[in-house]
Amino acid sequence: MASRRRKPNWLKTQPPAGTRFTEIKSTLRDRNLNTVCEEANCPNLGECWSGRDGPGTATFMLMGDRCSRGCNFCDVETGGMEPLDPTEPENVADAVAEIGLEYVVLTSVDRDDLADGGSAHFAETIRAINDRDPEILVEVLIPDFGGDPDAIDRIIDADPDVIAHNVETVERLQWPVRDRRAGYEQSLSVLDRVNRASDIHTKTSLMLGVGEYDHEVYRTLSDLREIDVDIVTFGQYLQPSRSHLDVFEYVHPDVFETWRRVAEEEFGFLYCASGPMVRSSYKAGELFVDALLREGTSIEAARQRARAVGGS
C-alpha cells in the first residue's frame, strides 16, 4: 500500500506552543541534553512539552543523539558515535530539578560500540536523580544491551520504579521493522530477567499499522503475560520520511480501544494505553504509575485517573 496517503483526522496534532514548552526547550539546550521527543520526531511533543491537560513532561535520551543501530521505523540518526559525556547524569538531574518534574522518563540510543552498552552510564543517571530527590519516580526505557545479563542487572540495581523495553512489533515483523541485532526472543528475555530478578514494574510497547495480523498481536500479548509484563502500550506507526518503513495501514481508534480491553480484561495487564497517538513514553501511562506507586490507589482508580487526563 502507498505510504504517503492522506492521514485520517484522528492523527492530526497541534504544533508546539506555550510558555512551558519554551521553558523546557531552553533548559535542555542550556545543558546540552537530548530528548527522544525531538530526536524521534514524536507527534506528541507539542502536547507534552506545552503542558496541555497537565504539567509539561519530557523524555530524556541519554548517551548522545546517534544510535549504533538502524531500525527502519526510527528517525534517530545512525552511526558516527561520540564518546559519552561524563557530566550528563548530573546535567539530567539538574534539568529535572529545574523543570520541576515529579515523574522522569529516561531512554537512550543503542550503544553497541561500548563494552557495557552504556548500562553503567544509564544507571549513574538514575542514581543522580534519586540522590537529588528520592521522591521522584523514575521510568527507564532501556535498549536490549545485546542481551547481556550483567548490563540489565546494572539497571535493576539502580532501582528505577519502572523498567520498559519495547518489543516494537510481532515476531514475524521484527525484520524489516527493527535492526537485525534486535529480536523478539532477545527482547522478551530482557523483560523476563527484570521480572525474575526484581519487583520493579515492567512495560513494553507495540506499533500497529506495519502489517501485523490480529492473531499475531494476540499471541504477542500472551507471550508478554507469560513473563509477567505489567504494562503495555499500543500506538500507530507513522513514517518519519520516505526512506523509512512504509505505513501498511492507519488503524482506526476503535481497534485500539478493542486491544486495550483485550490487554486489560482478558490478559490481565495492570494497564494498557492504546490509541493512534500513544507512544511508549506517554503521559497516561505515567499518570497510572504515579497514582499506583506514589498515591497507593487501586489499579482501577489509577486507570481512571490516567484516562481522565491522558485520554487513553
Score class of each variant (00 low, 15 high):
Ala2Tyr: 10
Arg6Leu: 15
Thr13Asp: 01
Thr13Glu: 01
Ala17Asn: 12
Arg20Val: 15
Arg20Met: 13
Arg20Asp: 15
Phe21Gln: 11
Lys25Arg: 13
Thr27Tyr: 14
Arg31Lys: 14
Asn32Ile: 10
Thr35Ala: 05
Val36His: 06
Glu38Pro: 00
Asn41His: 12
Gly46Ala: 14
Glu47Val: 02
Arg52Gly: 01
Asp53Val: 12
Pro55Cys: 08
Gly56Ser: 12
Met61Gly: 07
Met63Gly: 03
Arg66Asn: 06
Asn72Pro: 02
Glu82Lys: 13
Pro83Trp: 00
Thr87Glu: 15
Glu90Ile: 04
Leu101Trp: 04
Tyr103Arg: 03
Leu106Ser: 05
Ser108Ala: 15
Ala115Asn: 07
His121Asn: 04
His121Glu: 00
Asn130Arg: 14
Asp131His: 09
Asp131Asn: 13
Arg132Pro: 05
Val138Phe: 10
Val138Pro: 02
Glu139Pro: 12
Glu139Tyr: 00
Val140Glu: 04
Pro143His: 00
Asp144Ser: 02
Ala151Trp: 11
Ile156Glu: 03
Asp157Pro: 03
Ala158Glu: 00
Asp159Val: 06
Trp175Glu: 15
Val177Lys: 05
Arg178Gly: 12
Arg178Glu: 12
Asp179Pro: 12
Arg181His: 13
Arg181Glu: 06
Tyr184Asn: 03
Gln186Thr: 09
Ser187Ile: 10
Asp192Ala: 14
Asp192Ile: 07
Ser198Pro: 00
Asp199Trp: 06
Asp199Ile: 04
Ser205Lys: 08
Glu212Asn: 06
Ile227Trp: 07
Ile227Cys: 04
Asp228Ile: 08
Asp230Phe: 04
Ile231Leu: 07
Arg242Ile: 12
Phe256Trp: 10
Phe256Val: 01
Thr258Tyr: 13
Trp259Thr: 09
Glu264Ile: 12
Cys272Tyr: 01
Ser274Arg: 04
Val278Arg: 01
Arg279Cys: 01
Ala284Cys: 09
Glu286Ile: 01
Val289Thr: 03
Arg294Leu: 09
Glu300Asp: 14
Glu300Arg: 09
Arg303Leu: 00
Ala306Met: 05
Ala308His: 14
